[in-house]
């Protein structure tokens, strides 16, 4: 079981990184979503895996670790906020310039040179 979770996280991370490195905004957003899953599950798994023992107090002997769950719960909600902000920024950039590239396109701009000429 542990191997399945770990390898699942690995695959999600790998796919997430690959997509984050794409050139258009949409795959980058999808990539960050995948990374979010991976990170959330990773944090959750730091409480170790427990089957059939939710942290709802009963007469049971054994409970899953509640703390990572609480942390991940807020992380999931916050990640929605983060995704929404990134999406609106990507959308604004696309609508403003009719271009959904992540990087600036008009030739390779040397930022250092730009800064120096600005002075």
């Amino acid at each position: 079981m542990e191997f399945l979770v770990a390898s699942g996280i690995g695959v999600l991370t790998a796919a997430g990184i690959y997509l984050v490195l794409r050139l258009r905004t949409f795959p980058v957003i999808v990539g960050t979503a995948l990374l979010t899953y991976a990170v959330n599950v990773f944090l959750f798994a730091s409480g170790r895996l427990t089957v059939g023992a939710p942290p709802i107090l009963t007469d049971a002997e054994r409970y899953a670790d509640p703390l990572p769950q609480a942390l991940v719960l807020t992380a999931i909600v916050i990640s929605f906020g983060m995704t929404a902000v990134v999406v609106v920024i990507a959308l604004g950039a696309y609508l403003g310039s009719d271009d959904d590239h992540v990087d600036e396109q008009e030739g390779a701009l040397d930022t250092a040179r730009k800064l120096e000429s600005a002075e």
């Binding site: 542990e2 191997f3 979770v5 770990a6 390898s7 996280i9 690995g10 695959v11 999600l12 991370t13 790998a14 796919a15 997430g16 990184i17 690959y18 490195l21 794409r22 991976a38 990773f42 798994a45 730091s46 409480g47 170790r48 895996l49 670790d65 703390l67």
Partner: peptide, 29 residues
Amino acid sequence: DGAIGCVGGLGAGALCYYLLVRESVAPPI
């Protein structure tokens, strides 16, 4: 990019696996 992703994924997976098959270093709160 695929290579970077694979190495990263492998690292994350391996770290997680390492963690999962060991008890925590200090008892959790």
